[in-house]
């Protein structure tokens, strides 16, 4: 496609990572607009004008009634056809942290071929019972269809959540998602050699929330819709790393940027 892809970065109701989410899309070569959810409801903005939709992290509606639930409902009931149309058009969607919770609770992730918006998984309270901000190491499934994670091996990024334990009530689905490469990103122990994705739950705090199969993020069957609990946008520059003062590397882009480059390159035909 010609020109820079346009990203709609949703805002409002307690979403609070829109500033840095817009920044990473800009850094990756897209243009980013902050779009209040109500602008889509009233028609003041139109999703079909955009090539990327991002639901950033935050505390929409204070996480009351379950994180992501109420914003998920606003989208599921208020913007149902706009959102389905966007996904069915094969445009990339990302949800980060609270945005991931929204995508899971509105049924877009792990999702199905029909985009039926039926919830099949959830993000439960961390086993610790509370919110935590700590750095984790993520590893990506090289066989995943996810366009956002293409070619990525490991990155270090922070988690900042209280409800990030990925679970489902039908364990057979986990095998299905695993086989289809939808379990795109997992928590791993950084001292193990690559690759080391494991289905055995890793000890706390290597797995910060005791997510099933160490799942940190998933994609839909097409690989276009992706969500994860950790914050890749929080590591957009080397000086935002957790231990950068102990490392001798050249300063520049941080480890989280590859995800956003992937989406932009996908749209640019890369």
């Amino acid at each position: 496609m010609a020109g820079r892809p346009r990203a709609a970065v949703l805002s409002g109701f307690g979403i609070n990572c829109e500033t840095e989410t817009m920044a990473v899309f800009e850094m990756a070569g897209a243009t980013a607009d902050r779009i209040h959810v109500n602008q889509l409801v009233t028609g003041a903005a139109d999703l079909s004008d955009y090539q990327i939709m991002a639901i950033p992290g935050g505390f929409s509606f204070g996480d009351h009634l379950g994180s992501g639930r109420l914003l998920g409902n606003r989208l599921r009931f208020g913007l149902r056809e706009q959102v389905r149309g966007f996904v069915k058009a094969g445009k990339p969607v990302i949800g980060i942290c609270n945005g991931f919770q929204v995508l899971v609770k509105m049924g877009l992730l792990p999702g199905d071929d029909e985009v039926s918006l039926t919830q099949t998984a959830s993000l439960a309270l961390n086993d610790s019972g509370h919110y935590e901000n700590r750095w984790v190491t993520l590893e990506f499934d090289p066989s995943s269809p996810c366009i956002w994670t293409r070619g990525m091996k490991r990155i270090r990024v922070p988690v900042r959540h209280g409800e990030g334990k990925f679970v489902t009530d039908d364990r057979a689905l986990l095998d299905k998602w695993s086989a289809s490469g939808q379990l795109a990103v997992r928590y791993v122990d950084p001292i193990t050699p690559y690759p080391s994705i494991s289905d055995e739950t890793l000890p706390y705090p290597t797995s910060p929330n005791q997510s099933w199969r160490n799942i940190a993020g998933v994609c839909d069957p097409t690989g276009m819709v992706f969500g994860l609990m950790p914050h890749p946008e929080a590591n957009h520059s080397t000086w935002l790393g957790a231990t950068w003062t102990r490392e001798d590397s050249e300063h520049g882009e941080g480890e989280g940027m590859a995800i956003f480059h992937n989406a932009v390159e996908h749209l640019m035909g890369g």
Binding site: N16, C17, T19, E20, A23, G57, H130, Y131, E132, N133, R134, W135, P158, R160, H231, E233, A234, N235, H236, W239, L240, A242, T243, T245, R246
Partner: peptide, 22 residues
């Protein structure tokens, strides 16, 4: 302190924790 978000806005360079084990 860990249960405070100390990194939202992606700007925190020197954080409340440092060192090899954070």
């Amino acid at each position: 302190v860990r249960s405070y978000d100390h990194e939202v806005i992606a700007q925190t360079v020197i954080k409340p924790f440092c060192g090899a084990n954070h």
